[in-house]
Computed example of a mutant assay.
Amino acid sequence: MLQDRHGDTALHVACQRQHLTCARCLLEGQPESDRGPPHSLDLQLQNWQGLACLHIATLQRNQPLMKLLLENGADIDVQEGTSGKTALHLAVETQERSLVQFLLQAGARVDARMLNGCTPLHLAAGRGLKSISSTLREAGADSLLRNVEDETPQDLAEDVAPQDLAEDPFALLPFDDLKISGKPLMCAD
């Protein structure tokens, strides 16, 4: 649990350097007999940049490391200390749809909010990431939630890419009440 001058523990460093085996040893290792009782690792502990180990693994796009951390008790919805982003927000920022899907399947809150009220869908829509926006909507993201600037994800998408909406004007609308043969209609990219 010792932190260096950057606030990093040994596990933070293992995540930064993407050393899965080292991280596994730190998480599963037993203390030496003359060292006293085992100390449990605080997987939510943040370094001086406000990043927990799961945030670092997500930014490194390292899904096996993310899985290991989650299996060992990392909080999937822990917010980083500067803007309140969760791992799901960071996965959206990496533009890796597979990471977004992994976190959603692992139980990440799809409508988690940053300190400014933005959800992962706000970030995806604002960056014009249509396939990730679609993935988030399919997972139940609310496209009508407003951030502190009173903007919805739809507003942000219109600001960034009106030409994309001209091609597919229904892409961001929440048509969760339309059904065909009893199944909800989903808009996809």
Rank of each mutant, 00 (worst) to 15 (best):
P37V: 10
V92G: 02
Q60T: 02
T86R: 02
E93T: 12
V100D: 01
T94V: 07
T86M: 01
Q79I: 10
A91F: 05
Q101R: 13
T82V: 14
D34S: 15
G107L: 00
C22H: 09
L59K: 08
N72M: 12
H19I: 08
Q49S: 10
V100Y: 03
L104M: 06
V100W: 03
I76Y: 01
G29A: 08
G81D: 04
L65P: 01
G36L: 09
G36K: 07
K85A: 12
Q79M: 11
P37H: 08
A106D: 02
A74D: 03
T82M: 12
G29D: 06
L70Y: 00
T82G: 10
T86W: 00
Q49E: 09
A91D: 02
L90Y: 08
L43E: 01
T21D: 14
E28Y: 08
D42P: 02
E80D: 07
L26W: 03
N47A: 04
L27V: 09
P64H: 06
Q46L: 04
H55Y: 01
L43C: 05
Q101L: 15
A87N: 02
L90E: 10
L104Q: 02
G50K: 01
L54E: 00
P64W: 06
G73W: 04
P38W: 01
I76A: 03
E71A: 10
Q95T: 12
W48E: 11
P64I: 04
Q46W: 01
N72R: 14
E28L: 15
P64G: 07
E28Q: 15
M66C: 15
Q105G: 12
Q105K: 15
T94E: 07
V100L: 06
Q60E: 08
G29C: 05
L88H: 05
Q30T: 13
A106V: 03
A52Y: 00
E32L: 15
V100C: 06
V92Q: 02
K67Q: 15
L54I: 06
I56G: 01
Q30P: 10
H19F: 12
A74N: 04
P38V: 01
L27E: 07
C22R: 11
R35T: 12
L54F: 00
C22Y: 05
L26F: 05
L45Y: 07
L104N: 00
